[in-house]
Amino acid sequence: MWTRLANPGHFMRWSGALLPWLAGLSAAGVALGLYLSWFVAPPDYQQGETVRIMFIHVPAAWLGVFFYGSMALSAIGTLVWRHPLADVAQRAAAPIGAAFTLICLVTGSLWGKPMWGTYWVWDARLTSMLILFLIYCGIMALWRTMEDPNRAARAVAILTLVGAINLPIIKFSVNWWSTLHQPASILRMGGSTIDPSMLYPLLTMIGAATLTGLSLHLYTMRTEILRRRVRTLTIREAERLDAGAVGLAQARADAVPLGQAL
């Protein structure tokens, strides 16, 4: 069943049918999540109203990591099965993941200004997210430099997997580095101490953001498939014109008598 669903033609059909539902569901989810996080969740006793930034910061962080994970899975699909849909999924995921990572960084620093007194703290989590964003930038740059989509997909897949192996190491080393330089523990959000009155709005926002990200991913995957079709047709058209021109030149050369041609 999976192979049938993953066939690009079938994919276009079922994703086209699914997308309006998914988009509607994510819009409803975002509306519900926004309502819960603005009007139901109480202000935090420590952070005050600023805690409302967390309702977008945490889902954005989750999606930034989630899309890297899905890119790594698609990269395995590209390298092992050489599946075109895996290439497409990989390519479509990169800008979305980068955008959510950027949102996470900016909201984190906007939260940091009132809480920490400065826009940027070299905190372990923020720093890891910054490095993740840099890796996303590298991956998108590599996509742009390679003309042939199949070759680009394989190159990016290798880079994505090397990055996936490196990310835990980066996380570990940044944690180590930040404890080395900032022994004082900073105000931490999350963990198991979070109150249910905040947990449910947060979970709703995470779910809604995931649905939004998935709908965007499906939509851009469809665009990528269309782009590949356009590319194939353009090449075929160019070859046809080329062959036509060669044929004409041939005909003209044949028309000239042999003696004159020499």
Binding site: A141, I170, S173, V174, W176
Partner: peptide, 17 residues
């Protein structure tokens, strides 16, 4: 240039330690 952009983030752990 793209080489530098690709590999520098991956060199951070080595630099830290």
């Amino acid at each position: 240039l793209i080489l530098a952009v690709l590999v520098l983030p991956l060199m951070i752990p080595t630099l830290i330690f």
